[in-house]
Design a protein around this nucleic acid. Structure first.
Length: 424
RNA sequence: GGAGAGAUGCCAGAGCGGCCGAAUGGGACGGUCUCGAAAACCGUUAUACGGGCAACUGUAUCGAGGGUUCGAAUCCCUCUCUCUCCGCCA
């Protein structure tokens, strides 16, 4: 959520940002914000003045009563009653305006960073970096959804039986591979200064609002109505919300946390032939890194996080490319996002395995996440996060790229974690 | 799930319906003293939204939301959470 002050003072920047995103009706929306804001301030101003007067009058009534001047007190009392009436009306318009303003602000996406390219969709993303050679496999090589059957390591039918489509059951070496990847990712993150956190995987409504998963996106999360709880779509939500309504002492910055959680996504309506197998799931495992940074440090941190994720892919010996997302393809909350994609050789396509974003103050403003600098100023912080990494597509690429006649070769770095070198 | 107690500032903890944004103690920070430190002493120590170039100033906030009252941290109602005991239980 953008701050009203920012919209008020930097209207042109906001409008340009919305245009870069191909956001419709931006101009109209911003004008509504400014109008509502003016209405709100005017009402508050008038209400405050009246309240100041009635506060003073009330005090005077007390003094009059004490000194026994009853009739004067009664007269004043009548005056205050009149003030009260007006205050009530002003407060109504004021709170009404504030609520409207809030709803309007929820509709405005983040302003993209200056370096974010304009564009409509995925085709306009910039390839910022590519690493490794795209492998070519023999003609008889299999996509991962065949391989998992061949080696009996992941079972979708069993998942359907006990839960539904998109909830795979990992079996034997398949299950061990999951655990190995999770541990490998967590250990790597710890070695890079991230503190491991294990948060709850259900969150309340306030947390949903904090990271921008609510309102309007409730359809994407599983919901437990009985208790008003949502299953997390990513560890970003609980781990970032740890700092909701917090003023962090400057000395504790930056905050670098990592967490492994299962992630749940309803993915309503986004099913199709191109999302076979592990490409898209309702439940999957992910290790997520989250940083909280001072504004002046956040973009260096974004680059740093990307380099870190790239180092993971390199250790896993997966060819990848790094995309700088264009305005039209970027998430609602983000100011700048890099996607990392690995090449899945049998499918012959790039699969997104990580998305690393700087949200600047967008989430922090919703969460009231701030720090107090030495000069005593309270300032909104910047939040960032990135997948490091999401498992299913990594597994898909590993299976496809590493298939040999003798089975699937496990990358060297993982062998200490899996305890086996090949799946056969 | 049943019964009871409670929720005040960074923490602990006081608070008669007006003199309470809130005593006191601790912590933290700044200063005096010291070669330096400790001790002692002095001072500072919330947030949000308005107004103002600024100094400054108005309003709101004592778990949340309503109500009573000229006036609420203090009285009433609802909700949430925490604690204790009982029940159930990985």
């Amino acid at each position: 959520m953008l701050t009203v002050a920012f919209i008020r003072e930097q209207k042109e920047i906001v409008l340009a940002g919305l245009a870069k995103r191909n956001f419709k009706d931006g101009e109209e929306l911003i004008q509504q914000v400014l109008d509502t804001d003016l209405l709100r301030r005017t009402a508050q101003n008038q209400a405050d003045e009246l309240k100041a007067r009635s506060n003073a009058d009330s005090k005077k009534i007390g003094e009059l009563m004490k000194s026994g001047r009853q009739d004067e007190a009664t007269a004043l009392r009548a005056a205050v009653a009149g003030e009260k009436e007006q205050i009530k009306k002003l407060e109504e318009t004021w709170t009404q305006a504030e609520a409207t303003l809030q709803q309007l602000l929820y509709k405005i996406p983040n302003v993209p960073h200056a370096h974010v390219p304009a564009g409509k969709g995925a085709e306009d993303n910039l390839v910022a970096h590519q690493h490794g050679t795209v492998p070519t496999l023999p003609a008889d090589s299999l996509p991962h959804w065949e391989l998992i059957k061949k080696y009996d390591i992941i079972d979708f039918d069993l998942g359907v039986k006990i839960s539904g489509a998109g909830f795979p059951v990992y079996k034997g070496k398949g299950a061990k591979l999951q655990r190995a990847l999770i541990n490998f990712f967590l250990d790597q993150a710890a070695a890079h200064g991230y503190r491991e956190m294990q948060p709850p995987i259900v969150i309340n409504e306030a947390s949903g609002y904090g990271t921008g998963n609510l309102p309007d996106k409730e359809g994407q999360m599983y919901f437990v109505p009985e208790d008003g709880l949502y299953l997390i779509p990513t560890a970003e939500v609980p781990i970032t919300n740890l700092y909701r309504d917090v003023i962090i002492p400057e000395a504790e910055l930056p905050v670098k946390n990592v967490g492994y959680t299962p992630c749940f996504r309803r993915e309503a309506g986004s099913w199709g032939a191109h999302v076979r197998g592990l490409n898209r799931l309702h439940q999957f495992d992910k290790v997520e890194i989250v940083q909280i940074q001072k504004p002046e440090d956040s973009y260096a941190a974004l680059e740093d996080m990307c380099r870190y994720v790239q180092s993971l892919l390199e250790k896993l010996e997966l060819p990848y490319r790094k995309l700088l997302l264009c305005g039209g393809d970027m998430g609602f909350n983000s100011a700048m996002t890099y996607d990392l994609e690995v090449y899945s050789a049998a499918q012959q396509r790039w699969l997104e395995v990580s998305s690393v974003s700087n949200f600047e103050t967008f989430q922090a403003n919703r969460m009231k996440l701030r720090y107090k600098s030495k000069d005593g100023k309270t300032t909104l912080l910047h939040t960032l996060n990135g997948s490091a990494l999401a498992l299913p597509r990594i597994v898909a690429a590993l299976l496809e790229n590493n298939q040999t006649a003798g089975g699937i070769a496990i990358p060297k770095v993982l062998v200490p974690y899996t305890g086996f070198e090949v799946i056969n």
